[in-house]
Design a protein around this nucleic acid. Structure first.
Lengths: 218, 218
DNA sequence: TGATCGTTGTATCGGATCGATACATCTGTT
DNA sequence: AACAGATGTATCGATCCGATACAACGATCA
């Protein structure tokens, strides 16, 4: 669901569509770029349902601090006025989206609701927003994903007559299986970190600038 | 595209819809189960376009050897006749699909056509059917995928301000990056196996070997 | 006996998503 | 000035998905 990704990104600040797409690519784990044919209808849906409000504003204006919490209509008027008075030329217009309290409730509901076929994309999305979850719900998310991966592994090992496949198909199947094993090990590490995090939860909370693995090169 | 997967599986023998879905899961690299809401319309499309023929036959009948190459109508008649004479009870009816020469041509065309955003699913599918490709086209497929993964890696390393992300989002991003690196190494191994497999041939000119960042296409 | 449950199997519906495309503005290069 | 490329919004048809319904079969258990 795109709604979850959009609302989660909007909770960290107001964004316009193009920037939402960029952050989905490199701030979330989404490998494939999301399509504009999905993004803009999703934004229109969210705006129609009252989860977000859109504010059209010209470029060059300060990103947030001008109007405190102006809605859609007043925002458009302000953008027009600024276009005529201070800005001589009608610059590029961006529709900046802001999440509403109803949108935050919707986000919390989406995030807590477990999806029936919890595929990789859905799980990565939920894990990216896991700081909004209670520790027990967070751990349940990891365990459910792990159980599903283990299920897939046993299914593959039982029903795959691999000797009937040719070189390339078998190569793909084996690589898939290896990736599943790797993901299970990764989840085990995450769960260990979770339980360690819950034992002494009152230590310093600045995990953002802790250890960087020197990604500057290459 | 589902058409490619369906036609590729049908080239190894006649199958019915449910079995096609099973083989997509554990004979190809498709991690997520394909939906019936995609599979059955795709089969109907392929049948309407003449790429496959459907034969409804009862269970318990020998899978292939009864009628040599009967079409759809005669197949249905044969199934009805067998149901009345040899089989007393009207068993479960399966629609068995068989690929036609036109379907084989369509398959070859789909397999050779490079997809613009060559995502993981598309690539795994094509690699599973790589034995139908010429060695040079096969190698080009691997190199194109590798170039795309390298592109993604450089994009991520440049534009990701990872220190702004919280623990969970950064964890997801790093795991994604690690998986991309792993896939690149896997592709390198495959390409090495390919070039070793082609040592029998005389490599007169092969300009793209060694230039990993050279997309000669488009 | 039959009652219930899980598996196999085909099919459809509405909505979500995709790929392609169009259009417009800004920025940098030659 | 001319051109290319990034930025930005938007729509279209086709495809894909999740849910659901329906039906026949096998197995298990009371």
């Amino acid at each position: 669901m795109l709604d979850l990704a959009i609302l989660g990104l909007l909770q960290e600040g107001d964004l316009h569509g193009y920037e939402i797409r960029r952050r989905m690519r490199d701030s979330l784990g989404l490998t494939a770029n999301i399509s504009f044919g999905s993004l803009y209808p999703a934004l229109a849906r969210l705006e129609a349902s009252g989860a977000v409000t859109a504010t059209e504003r010209a470029a060059g204006v300060a990103p947030l601090s001008s109007g405190a919490a102006m809605g859609s209509l007043s925002g458009e008027l302000a953008a027009l006025r600024a276009r005529r008075t201070s800005m001589a030329r009608p610059k590029k217009s961006k529709k900046v989206y802001r999440i509403t309290p109803a949108g935050q409730a919707y986000f919390a509901e989406l995030l807590a609701t477990p999806t029936s076929p919890d595929d990789a994309r859905n799980f990565s999305l939920r894990l990216s927003f896991a700081r909004h979850l209670a520790p027990d719900v967070r751990l349940a998310l990891l365990q459910r994903r792990r159980a599903q991966l283990v299920d897939r592994l046993t299914e593959v090992s039982t029903s795959a007559r691999r000797e009937e496949l040719d070189v390339y198909a078998r190569c793909v199947v084996e690589h898939t299986e290896e990736r599943v094993r790797h993901d299970i090990a990764w989840l085990d590490g995450l769960m260990a970190a979770e339980s360690q995090r819950s034992t002494h939860h009152s230590i310093s909370q600045d995990p953002s600038v802790g250890h960087s693995m020197a990604p500057a090169n290459e």
